[in-house]
Design a protein around this nucleic acid. Sequence first.
DNA 1: CGGAGTGTTGAGGTAGCTCAATGTGTGTGG
DNA 2: CCACACACATTGAGCTACCTCAACACTCCG
Lengths: 251, 251
Amino acid sequence: MATSANQSRIGVPCLACPLRLKPAFKDKTDDEVRFIQAMKMEHRLLPAGADIIQPGQEDAALYTLFSGWAFRYKSLPDGRRQILNFLLPGDLVGLQASLLSAAQHGIEALTEVELCAFPRKRVWDLFVRMPSLSYEIAWLGSREESLIDENLTSVGQRNAAERIAALLISLHRRADALGLVSENSFRFPLSQQQLADALGLSLVHTSKTWAKLRRAGLFSVSGGRLTLLNPRLTARMVSLFERELEPRPLI
Amino acid sequence: MATSANQSRIGVPCLACPLRLKPAFKDKTDDEVRFIQAMKMEHRLLPAGADIIQPGQEDAALYTLFSGWAFRYKSLPDGRRQILNFLLPGDLVGLQASLLSAAQHGIEALTEVELCAFPRKRVWDLFVRMPSLSYEIAWLGSREESLIDENLTSVGQRNAAERIAALLISLHRRADALGLVSENSFRFPLSQQQLADALGLSLVHTSKTWAKLRRAGLFSVSGGRLTLLNPRLTARMVSLFERELEPRPLI
DNA sequence: CGGAGTGTTGAGGTAGCTCAATGTGTGTGG
DNA sequence: CCACACACATTGAGCTACCTCAACACTCCG
């Protein structure tokens, strides 16, 4: 769970970053990309379950998630844990931790992950020298907050089935924007316990509700992949107003 | 509820801003304050219940809350509503809304409020010309996210009594940092319905749990003010690890 | 083969829900 | 001055969504 098996290696140069080509991301000028590349400290590879940022850590770096999934969480002293949000490729990892003096949360790799690491100290530098990038960092921070707002609303107002549906829809749309969905099917690496911690439900009730929705034909799971059998219906369950997924910055 | 009774008037010049003198806020250079003052569009006075930002609004300005309380919320189509967080003097209002293309939430005045309004279009300007301020805006965004993380953890993991205690402690500490607390007593303008919407509980259960904690001697209410009778005990109920409240930027 | 991690299911308890009645303070119009 | 409406708080009664405890199955791995 806590092993920090960081295996440094040379990553792809940012100018040739395959992530950057996806339509989910806004274009950057060559200047901006060169700045990002110069700022990049290392390319880290971590196994599933590794701690990316520890709660209370004071020297956390800033990362961009290059591949894999991760999640932010907060624990109470008695062991209860809330998963705050999930991180998918292209998301900033540890912005809050790198701006505030100490991390108020933990971040853990959900699958094997690749991270582009930027030294904490150079974030200030970026704000001074690259206003366009600093604006986009603030934008990405606001976008993350917006996702957490959605989760809080789910946990505070929706029942178990609605919460599951809302989470699936949200993950489906985010994965889709990254081109990770084919025929409504995408990799789904969450354990039931992690699901429960994200939904604010007990493990048992999560499992039962999950099974019920599966039997009701909402989705199917096989080989670590999840298929939404009727995305429209699922979306209607949580009465989403469909928000545009506009291209976002990639730092 | 929705009347926009904005009565423009000359506010205090930012250089002489009384809020800025409080120890809760970091010092700024004269240059920075002058920039903020030049950017300030107007000083708005709104009555309790007024909409500051409407859900979906696309041209929301950025504000600093000068006096009074407000809250951010998100509504579901069937009327359920989640209060995401409360805003106290010195907090940025509408950062998310002014960065993203449309507000994903609403913001409502809880009491009469005074707002320092900054035009949305000049936020970009600020990032270009004032790196120190843009860094601090990002910092304040992260701080707000951290508060929402705490609320999400509360709603997802704590029972009704713990949620109330956590909310009271959090508000008490924030009000205290602003010098708004005397003898553990501070203004408390929330209705039970608003309390319920913030806690993710029904109105009835909120009222019953509230009464139980009051009878148990945790706090008392009179004249719109709330007194924490045993802050230590209350804090222990939610097992907070006491975080420093370091001075924060005031834009 | 044994143990650990994960998922499923049943049984029974309770925290929190809905419905409904009542009280209380405040503003408004006659 | 009273009558009335309205918003807000309180309390009781009964229901259920979700909880905990517990047993069992499956897979992976040493």
